[in-house]
Design a protein around this nucleic acid. Structure first.
Length: 889
RNA sequence: GGGCAAGUAGCUCAGCUUGGUUAGAGCAUUUGAUUUACAUUCAAAAGGUCGAAGGUUCAAGUCCUUCCUUGCCCACCA
């Protein structure tokens, strides 16, 4: 006899199964030609990460899919791992150092990196353990890291290949510079935020007429210190005659020319633009067109430099204030206006980014984008929900080169060396040496005095290789052949450009194949007020706390069933999953305590369909119906719908109706077998959603399976054979059962209406409309009696009316409950009249429609006949109701 | 400035692809129930002019147009 506690205890169960899964290595995947592969690569969380709801959502979705596919018989690989997250991780360590009053430069590169690796050793897998607690069925034996040895090899390989193809180049450009992190960022890493700023109008005087001048407008007045021209539109009549004249830059005294450039729009501001080629991307381009001098006025840390004259050494924001004050004092500041504009911010530290001139490495993107764009456009790679396709293609079509060098230490060092050489050969050796291995000597002059590029690569320059490097690339091995291309990628919208798009490009470039065939973009987890969950807002719900309090299954189930486009969640919502897990537990408890003989015999795999009663045939049909719909929902990423389906089936049909029907009939071995059959198959169906509680119950079901995680998904009967289809999916059973349920519902309804005490029984008279219905009711008489708390149940088709009874008509079937004094006849009359009136109104509408010749002429036949059926059914009901009403006295 | 998405019950969402029953579910609410698998439970009730206005159609929550509101993404008008 199996004894279960009255409440499901998640903690115990989860610990147990995490150990079992690990010990038996059930999630390990290996190339297996007998099976089809199904591969997912995890979006690798940062090693600095601690599990938040976003991770939880992402990984639960992946786990549902991978568990489903595993049960469907695929050789499933879910590849786990972490990302070194260059800037983010370096920032963490730098903060630690700061507490000791040190900077990374105090330690030196080597020591600093040692410290980083030590940190990685100690804390880098925290997130991995947290992902395990969710129940994630990754192949943990394969856990990868973006700075593993082979990963470094791959990154170098990629760099060298792209360089040799001419797709990587070094150049001096205006890039996004974070003065706090002191590194270049890519365009994607600079997040634009709308800010209320000022637009300053400044007069630049003519050299030969200092009283007059040209007024320019700027949002960053301090950059005027680096101005080398003023530009106007060549067609702007106000300025045409001024082109070529010389101005004197206020505060600085530099003479600058008025130039004409099409970029300038006459409409904005004053129509004249100050040109600062070293501090603005547009000005840089103008500067190149007009061969202007580029004057850098800023230190890498954001302080103004010696080029700023008396402002030298001031922080950029302080410098701005002082420049404005000085301009104002000397009479050059004409006016100041409020101005809204978008300013870039560092995505890692939120510092305002500075457009900054520096020498960086870039990847030329448009050749890489071509096949990646095509793949999505022609459906080779599908992106769901579909509207994200457009976001992807828009970005791809307008792709810009990717700045990949970072002036930090944590990351893949750029595999480029420069010859420091001897004096004589300096000219020849300007070409950088790009190599997968550390070169011994300069190929040009033979000098052994080489210096490696100080910079490291953008984190995403390694992440974009994730789907194939984790499988062993650049080595061509069996895993890579078998598991690549992977199948589904599940991720959040934030990293479509950073990661998804670039992976597709890398897949085509280095593997000649797409990295995956479908991408599902899921929503963002928000709090109940719609705000993004974040530590700084203090609205974050810690998934680990939820696991402690409600269990991992509860976290999983609740999060997913609440998922729409975005997910709005508050703590109470997790009760949904906890309650459901407990419901499953208790259903099992009931079945185990009552189905001992069949359970011990282990004999409930197949059922003798002919021996089954209506509720059994019905629940089996409901199961297969649910199975079909749920499978389809999972495969089309409708996860919350899938959970609704299984919950509705298990709770709403199996527990609320079936188990209630069979109470008291457990002596029947067929009933025992059916209950066990449905329970067992339900556990399979539920397993991807709530793996722990289902494993635990399944383990008590006397099967030979080592664990539920690896058993087969229940199969649909209908492709097997027509016979089985007929017997298992019984559409008649749906209809018949509905009638029985309706009768019980009607009885319960009347009981509540007339305040019959729950402990009191009532008498009921049922008047069936035909012989079939009569038989149906007779067969299920016992159930109706028990569930409706009926003392005497009379089934008699000849009864016209019953005295002092409340009554309901369901599909022409009359239900009478003689309640004697309990019934207020007047009130009952009123209630029934209202019912008649309501039905008659619907009938009128139908009648009008059916009388409309245009409708009859144009509407499809089946619609018309359906409407006719409805009308006649209503007509019957009304007729019956009226008979009852007439006899009510 | 451009684009995308959403607006259905107090709340969170489904239904819209392919127009055709009385627009559904969960939570919350109200009423009642606890010797009986589960009060993390059960039974029942109440709650919606489907953001607004037009249009197409025999028929619109569903299709079209415009507008309003909210959220998100992109963007070098200084």
């Amino acid at each position: 006899m199996i004894d279960l506690s009255a409440r499901y205890n998640p903690q115990e169960t989860e610990d147990k199964w995490l150990k079992v899964w690990k010990a038996s290595n059930v999630f390990h995947a290996a190339a297996n030609v007998k099976k089809k592969p199904f591969t997912i690569v995890i979006p690798p969380p940062n090693i600095t990460g601690i599990l938040h709801m976003g991770h939880a959502l992402n990984n639960i979705l992946q786990d549902i899919l991978i568990r489903y596919k595993r049960m469907k018989g695929f050789e499933t690989l879910w590849m786990p791992g972490t990302d070194h997250a260059g800037i983010a991780t370096q920032n963490v360590i730098e903060k630690e150092l700061a507490k000791e009053g040190k900077k990374r430069q105090d330690l030196g590169r080597e020591e600093f990196l040692k410290r980083l690796w030590a940190w990685r050793q100690e804390y880098g897998d925290t997130i991995i353990h947290q992902l395990e607690k969710l129940g994630s069925s990754c192949d943990w034996s394969r856990t990868r890291f973006t700075m593993d040895e082979n990963y470094s090899q791959a990154v170098k390989e990629v760099f060298v290949r792209l360089y040799e193809k001419g797709l990587i180049y070094r150049g001096e450009r205006i890039i996004n510079w974070c003065p706090r992190c002191q590194t270049a960022l890519s365009d994607e890493e600079a997040e634009h935020q709308e800010k209320n700023g000022k637009l300053y109008h400044i007069r630049y005087p003519f050299k030969n007429n200092p009283k007059e001048g040209v007024i320019v407008a700027t949002t960053r007045p301090e950059t005027m210190l680096g101005d080398t021209a003023v530009a106007v539109n060549p067609k702007d009549s106000r300025y045409i005659k001024l082109i070529g004249r010389i101005l004197v830059l206020p505060l600085v005294g530099r003479e600058i020319k008025i130039i004409a450039d099409d970029f300038v729009s006459a409409e904005f501001g004053t129509g004249a633009v100050k040109v600062t080629p070293a501090h603005d991307p547009n000005d840089f381009v103008i500067g190149q067109r007009h061969k202007l001098e580029m004057i850098n006025i800023m230190h890498p840390d954001g302080r103004l430099n010696e080029q700023a004259g008396k402002f030298n050494g001031l922080d950029r924001f302080e410098g701005r204030k002082r420049v404005i004050a000085a301009l104002d004092m000397e009479g050059y500041l004409v006016k100041t206006e409020d101005h809204k504009h978008a300013v870039g911010h560092c995505y890692r530290c939120d510092t305002m980014v500075e457009p900054y001139l520096s020498k960086q490495w870039f990847v030329k993107m448009s050749p890489l984008a071509k096949p990646a764009l095509k793949a999505v456009k022609n459906g080779t790679i599908k992106i769901y929900p579909e509207h994200w396709q457009k976001v992807y293609t828009n970005w791809m079509e307008d792709i810009r080169d990717w700045c990949i060098s970072r002036q930090i230490w944590w990351g893949h060092r750029i595999p480029v060396w420069y010859c420091v050489g001897d004096e004589a050969c300096q000219l020849k050796c300007k070409e950088p040496i790009v190599s997968k291995t550390t070169p011994e000597q300069c190929p040009h002059c033979g000098s052994k005095n080489l210096r490696q590029d100080e910079d490291v690569l953008d984190t995403w320059f390694s992440s974009w290789l994730w789907p194939f490097v984790t499988l062993g690339w650049p080595k061509d091995n069996a895993d890579l052949k078998y598991f690549y291309p992977t199948h589904t990628l599940l991720t959040a919208s934030e990293i479509i450009f950073f990661w998804v798009a670039r992976m597709i490009m890398a897949g085509y470039e280095f593997m000649g194949q797409p990295p995956f065939s479908e991408v599902f973009i899921h929503g963002t987890v928000r709090d109940s007020r719609g705000r993004k969950m974040s530590k700084s807002l203090g609205n974050a719900i810690d998934p680990l706390e939820i696991i402690d309090q409600y269990g991992a299954d509860a976290l999983r189930f609740s999060l997913i069933i609440n998922s729409g486009q975005d997910i709005f969640i508050s703590k109470e919502k997790f009760e949904i999953g906890r309650n459901f897990a407990n419901k499953i537990w208790n259903a099992a408890r009931l079945i185990f305590t009552n189905c001992g003989p069949a359970l011990e015999a282990g004999d409930y795999e197949t059922l003798d369909v002919k021996a089954l009663d209506l509720p059994s045939r019905w629940i089996i049909s409901r199961f297969y119906e649910t199975l079909d719909k749920t499978s389809k929902a999972i495969e089309t990423f409708r996860y919350s719908e899938a959970e609704n389906l299984v919950q509705d089936f298990f709770w709403g049909s199996f527990c609320d109706w079936y188990l209630e029907f069979i109470k008291g009939k457990f002596t029947d071995i067929h009933v025992q077998k059916t209950a066990l059959f449905i329970l067992k198959n339900s556990l399979k169906l539920l397993h991807p959603f709530v793996p722990f509680v289902t494993e635990e119950i399944y383990s008590k079901m006397n099967t030979k399976d080592s664990c539920l995680s690896v058993v087969s998904w229940p199969s649909l009967p209908w492709p097997v054979s027509q016979d089985r289809q007929k017997s298992l999916i019984d559409t008649d059973a749906f209809e018949q059962m509905q009638t029985v349920i309706d009768v019980i519902w009607a009885i319960r309804n009347i009981r509540t209406q007339w305040n019959v005490k729950p402990q009191d029984s009532v008498d009921v008279v049922l008047v069936p409309v035909n012989r079939q219905q009569e038989q149906l009711l007779e067969k299920n008489q016992g159930d109706i009696q028990r569930l409706g708390k009926v003392k005497t149940l009379t089934i008699d088709s000849k009864v016209q009316t019953v005295k002092d009874a409340a009554s309901v008509v369901v599909n022409a079937l009359k239900v009478f409950i003689p309640l004697g004094v309990l019934v207020d006849l007047a009130a009952e009359k009123k209630r029934m009249s209202q019912e008649v009136a309501r039905k008659q109104k619907t009938m009128e509408g139908l009648q009008t429609r059916l009388n409309n010749p245009v409708f009859v002429d144009k509407a499809p036949r089946d619609v018309i006949s359906k409407e006719k059926d409805r009308l006649s059914a209503l007509g019957k009901d009304v007729k019956e109701l009226q008979t009852v009403l007439a006899n009510l006295s």
